[in-house]
Design a protein around this nucleic acid. Structure first.
Lengths: 230, 230
DNA sequence: CGTAGTGTTGACTGATATCAACGTTAGTGG
DNA sequence: CCACTAACGTTGATATCAGTCAACACTACG
């Protein structure tokens, strides 16, 4: 896989013992529960998922999307309580790590420790972008940003084959990401479709013109560069 | 200082050589510029600051606030480009680190490396809360959340003396944090003041009833527990 | 064949933005 | 010492974006 930094031999050996197994999750399954203690640490191998938080009265906010190569449950492994939930959008395959060997990883494999911090910094960077979007962009701009963002992330892990990508989300997901109602989200997505920027399929979105979306949202894209994989 | 984890001797020795000096910044000064390469890595020793991003047309979103003990510029040290700016709210004293010795820190001081990752996770956790606020809370709830949040953070670093705290921000800062207009922010803060929850001073906010604010926002507070200091 | 989830649309309502004016204060230069 | 200016905070009138309500079509599924 291009775009990932290569492993050293010792790192590879450690990671293979660090891994305790694989977990498969069905669409709609909750992998991580907000408020849970000592959940596991995972890497997503394939599929789409998302992180979210709930308010007491049921209002839901989607915080970010999880794509192959992303860590799941790091925050819960480092602090002790999980402060968000994670749900599968498609069928997932996760690599399960031994959470309690994280200190050992930091002690003996500085390269891997740095990679984890790198991934945490990248998450922070994405959240910053989302915050800018929710706070200061209009509904159209927000929607355009979100779809351009997901397209770019999918591209960077090789999910965009022959110029086409289906993002497996419903309009309810989009609404809960953008902080809008479903109805208004529907009208906004319709406008984007009428402009020829996207196509909305059954429970999926096809991005037709990424550059158009990025221009509409005035979004520069994520910084390029090689990323680590754990 | 209670609430911080103690250093080991070797860590203390390293940190004292890792530090190259101190930087003092005046209120309104920009310490870190969005788009800048190779900025420094700092720890804030005293004062209040904030991180923000701008849209091309000048719309500003404040991402988070920086209080004593927080790292400044970690994202820029790990990726290469700074993706946000940092501005001083009050007079700051910063501890300046040698950014290029970060790999050495990871290699020889696993405990400190873990601390950095802990701080990054905590930042992520705060951003998650902000995202929930911007996406799903009303103007009143958002304002209440923000002020309760800042009060709690100030408390945890010992800034709240004799039950009183002045947060050194203008209503423009609040507006740019909450994603609202200044005018509406003013009306919202007025309502909070009329409820006896806060008092608005010249260029500062005094929190009178944190519990009332937290209840209004349905916010649980940040997870408790000992934090690292670098 | 009913039911639940999803997407769509129109009518109406409400929250927040925009515009405008004004008071206060602190700083500045004459 | 006194205009003058620039931030900052305040308030009311009006405009607009997004929310709510309601109805309906479509599909998958039991």
């Amino acid at each position: 896989m291009p775009g990932f930094r290569p492993f050293e031999a010792a790192e590879l050996r450690f990671v293979s013992t660090f891994k305790t197994g694989e977990l498969v999750a069905k669409p709609g399954a909750t992998i991580v529960h907000e408020g849970a203690h000592s959940s596991h640490l995972y890497t997503l191998l394939s599929g789409w998922a998302f992180r979210y938080k709930l308010l007491a009265d049921g209002r839901r906010q989607i915080l970010n999307y999880i794509l192959p190569g992303d860590l799941v449950g790091l925050q819960g492994s480092i602090m002790d309580v999980m402060e968000h939930s994670v749900e599968a959008l498609s069928t997932l395959v996760l690599c399960v790590f031994q959470r309690d060997r994280l200190p050992e990883l930091f002690r003996n494999h500085a390269g891997l420790a740095f990679d984890i911090t790198w991934l945490a910094s990248r998450e922070e960077l994405m959240l910053d972008d989302h915050l800018l979007s929710l706070g200061r962009r209009t509904a159209m701009e927000r929607a355009a940003y979100l779809l351009a963002f997901l397209h770019q992330r999918a591209t960077s892990v090789g999910l965009v084959s022959e110029r086409s990508l289906l993002i497996p989300i419903t309009q309810q997901h989009v609404a809960d990401t953008l902080g809008l109602s479903v109805v208004h989200t529907n009208k906004t997505l319709r406008k984007l479709a009428d402009c020829g920027l996207i196509r909305w399929l059954d429970r999926a979105c096809e991005v037709i013109d990424v550059d158009g979306l990025m221009k509409l949202a005035a979004w520069e894209g994520l910084p390029a560069g090689r990323r680590p994989l754990i």
